[in-house]
Amino acid sequence: MKLIAKNVTKDGEGDVTLVPEEPEDMWHAYNLISEGDSVRSTTIRKVQSESSTGSSTSNRVRTTLTISVETIDFDTQACMLRLKGKNIEENQFVKMNAYHTLELEMNRKFSLRKAEWDSISLERVDIACDPTKSADVAAVIMQEGIAHICLITSSMTLVRAKIDMNIPRKRKGFVAQHEKGLQKFYDNVMQAVLRHINFDIVKCILVCSPGFVRDQFYEYMFQIAVKTDNKLLLENKGKFMLVHASSGFKHSLREVLQDPGVVNKISDTKAAGEVKALESFYSMLQNEPSKAFYGLKHIEKANEAQAVETLLISDKLFRCQDVKLRKEYVRLVDSIRDSGGEVKLFSSLHISGEQLEQLTGIAAILRFPMPELEEDSDEDE
């Protein structure tokens, strides 16, 4: 994301002009824009004009509109953001208060105005505009006949390609057909890797599968690379890492990212940091339950005692339509940071974020035990 201009007053009112440069930037924009904000961007509008003879013609014109956002629709597959709302600035083609849908696209600037920019929104702008904060890990999750090519960024797990093929079973007298089917499958996966993984950016490619599928695929890929003198694969051979996974489906990524060897390899990425924090929370919940709690009520009580060491919170909570509740979460985050606590903001589109949402979307590891909170839980039950 490129920051063009930022004009925010001490009171928190103001506007920010941004240019999304990659698919993940659209996710950041989705988290930044709330209902009631005003967004200014160029758009195409169908305009009908009537001639002196009474015949009417319709033309599509490009114009700049400012709308007050009422509905927000994010398409995760196309990484496109659609905003619907009323026009709030004079325009020669669109009447005041007429409804229009703005589509935010990559490499097209937009201005976002808020009545109040809170610390979470401003932090999101900083993260989006700092390319070093994006993770750079890819994963090939596979089993015989099924493979998913995923990109693991700091905000989401994107499935870039899915290969689903029927491989003939290994039966007596039909071994050659099985081998041929497997070879074709591996070739399709290799082509998808070359097409969807940018080796200039990606630091680590995890090849995950049950059994020996990953080893066979890795061996096949580099045999072909040597035969065809594929310099791109040969130069990046050290980036590939073979890891066990229970299946070839996306949900197996969770266990892969918990593997100590994998965590060490990608420890400088945010994805690993989130997974590590969640692992610590589960471990604490099992071994010292009086130092691990989830749910807003308990965490607010722990914060009053300045007991929160690490807060784990889903970005989904900051997209809630209840302004009062959103402000409550922002206040909690600011207060924990002020008292020296660490805040981990999880993305609801990331595997770890999906897991955290099962625990109400907010959890905390405490500095010291608070058994009285456990007693409160028992009373509530």
Rank of each mutant, 00 (worst) to 15 (best):
L366C: 11
L104P: 05
K2D: 11
M221H: 01
S56W: 05
A272M: 01
Y220S: 05
C320W: 10
Q358H: 13
M106S: 12
K109N: 09
H196K: 10
A147H: 03
V69M: 07
I120W: 00
S49L: 08
L296S: 06
S58R: 13
Q321L: 13
F93W: 15
D215C: 12
L122K: 10
G238C: 03
H350A: 14
L349T: 05
Y30Q: 11
E22F: 12
E255W: 12
D334F: 04
F368C: 02
V262Q: 04
E179G: 08
L359S: 01
S348N: 11
D73F: 13
E219Y: 13
V69Q: 10
K114P: 04
A5F: 12
S339H: 02
K172A: 15
V275T: 08
S283P: 06
S56P: 04
T64F: 03
A363I: 04
L285S: 14
S352N: 07
V330W: 01
K237E: 00
P260C: 09
K237I: 07
K170L: 15
M165K: 15
V39K: 04
D376S: 12
Y220W: 10
Q92I: 12
V125C: 09
F212N: 15
L345V: 02
G181C: 15
N287C: 08
A305Y: 03
